[in-house]
Design a protein around this nucleic acid. Structure first.
Length: 420
RNA sequence: GUGGCCGUAGCUCAAUGGCAGAGCCCCGGAUUGUGAUUCCGGUUGUUGCGGGUUCGAGUCCCGUCGGCCACCCCA
């Protein structure tokens, strides 16, 4: 038996890696004053079938009929869920609402590098503020999250665009109907993939040429970007962002700013993406809740691949993974007749918050030191016939010093452990 | 969902249609209180699975499952 295609087993090492990524996500989101929330993994199919998500995501739903004849789907994204939650209790929270979640998502796609059927995503949303300052704050949160893994502006780029700039441009070209404008956006979305001939053919019905679009992309300098850039420059983060009007994103609900994060060196799929959806809450609540919102998601798969590929970020990740699985102290029972005293030492150290391991059965000292080494502990405490004295062995320096039993608690309290 | 490439030990890989191997890892041992390295020994296995061709298939053919890549799309 093996796991289903696109689903992962998390052995301790993979689990440590996952915890490093999700732990870093959580720490940075909290540092921006965001509060954690969560929702159900399984949702009514209708939540996605209504025009909220739109686009390709409908064809990628992991859906089935449950035993109560309900049509259900494993969630493919967080936005519809959080939108429902916001609509239900929007009045209870002071604005702006700043929420994040870390949760698994499911899409029924053929797996490929950077794309699985179950993946984790950090979702951050800021609701109730439609200002450029809110946009900049979200981009800063996105960038800081990347920086927390050791990624620099040489490694990644945030390609920033705005659907309003396109709408204005299209209106100037006579495309005023919103449905038609949206169709043009989906052509722009494929600008980097389709052949020029195919693009021309798709644009002709709208009275547009490929040249119209490429001219706009190359020459337009919309005001929104200047404001964003100034805000980010005040934080020293402007080097991460780049105006790129080719980004429009596939999801139907975006209304303004849209952005995606890419690896600067390699041609891999987007690491993160998001945008502004100022009308979604109103649309879903039939106008009862009318709050502007901006959000983004970061997946763990592409990000994890990138972190493993770059030497600096890999070293940082591996150090965190090692620490996440290590003990602080390994107690060596050098004299089996002192096992009870050793258990007392173990108990004391654990009560002081230290991560402690020791041999469950009588074993040769040489073997115990091998186990001590494998435990990741930086020190071994030897309990033997010199009791009530102990020996402290520094496992890296291979030096040994004496320690009186009464001094054990102070020693443990001052023990240096590697910072997470 | 469509197309291409691939599938041998836990991992990385080798074997002309002719007896299934190496390294790493793991486990045990080298005169019973100190973990590097070393030395000796041990398990590495339904060659993904099921058919077919053949005296004989890891090798050739068909199917199937799984993986990688492209399309698609995006985390």
């Amino acid at each position: 038996m093996q796991s289903l295609p696109g689903f992962r087993d998390f052995f301790p090492n993979e689990c440590a890696r996952r915890n490093y990524i999700t732990g870093t996500w959580r720490r940075i989101a909290r540092s921006f004053g965001f509060r954690e929330y969560d929702g159900p993994t399984l949702e009514p199919l209708d939540l996605y079938r209504k025009k909220n998500s739109g686009g390709e995501i409908l064809g990628q739903l992991f859906s089935f009929t449950d035993k109560g004849e309900r049509e259900v789907a494993l969630r493919p994204e967080m936005t519809p869920t959080v939108a429902r939650m916001l609509i239900a209790k929007a009045r209870e929270y002071r604005k702006p609402i700043k929420w994040f979640s870390i949760a698994p998502f499911f899409r029924y796609e053929k797996q490929q590098s950077g794309r699985l059927r179950e993946f984790l995503q950090l979702n951050c949303d800021l609701v109730g503020d439609d200002s450029s300052a809110a946009d900049a704050e979200m981009l800063a949160l996105l960038i800081e999250t990347m920086r927390a893994f050791g990624l620099t502006e040489n490694d990644i780029v945030v390609r920033v665009s705005d659907r309003r700039a396109w709408m204005k441009f299209l209106a100037g070209k006579g495309v005023t109907d919103e449905t038609k404008a949206r169709e043009v956006l989906s052509v722009i979305d494929k600008l980097e993939r389709d052949s020029p001939e195919a693009l021309q053919a798709k644009l002709a019905p709208f009275g547009l040429t490929l040249g119209d679009l490429t001219d706009f992309i190359e020459t337009a300098r919309p005001a929104f970007f200047t404001a964003l850039n100034e805000n980010l420059a005040a934080r020293g983060l402007e080097g991460f962002c780049q105006l790129d009007l080719r980004i429009v994103r596939g999801l139907a609900y975006y209304t303004g700013l849209v952005f995606e994060v890419f690896d600067r060196r390699q041609d891999r799929r987007a690491i993160a993406g998001g945008g502004r959806f100022d009308r979604l809450l109103s649309d879903l609540s039939d106008g009862k809740v009318d709050l502007p919102a901006i959000g983004f998601g970061i997946g763990d798969v592409v990000l994890g691949d990138l972190l493993a590929d770059l030497p600096d970020t890999r070293a940082k990740m591996e150090a965190a993974m090692a620490d996440g699985q290590a003990c602080d102290v390994f107690v060596v029972v050098a004299d089996e007749s002192r096992r009870n005293e050793a258990l007392g030492v173990v108990q004391l150290l654990r009560s002081l918050g230290r991560r402690v391991d020791y041999p469950l059965q009588s074993d040769k000292v040489a073997r115990q030191f091998k186990d001590a080494d494998a435990s990741g502990a930086s020190v071994a405490l030897v309990v033997g016939n010199e009791w009530p004295k102990l020996k402290v062995k520094d496992l890296k320096a291979r030096t040994e010093t004496d320690l009186a039993q009464e001094a054990l608690a102070d020693w443990a309290a001052n023990l240096q452990t590697p910072a997470p």
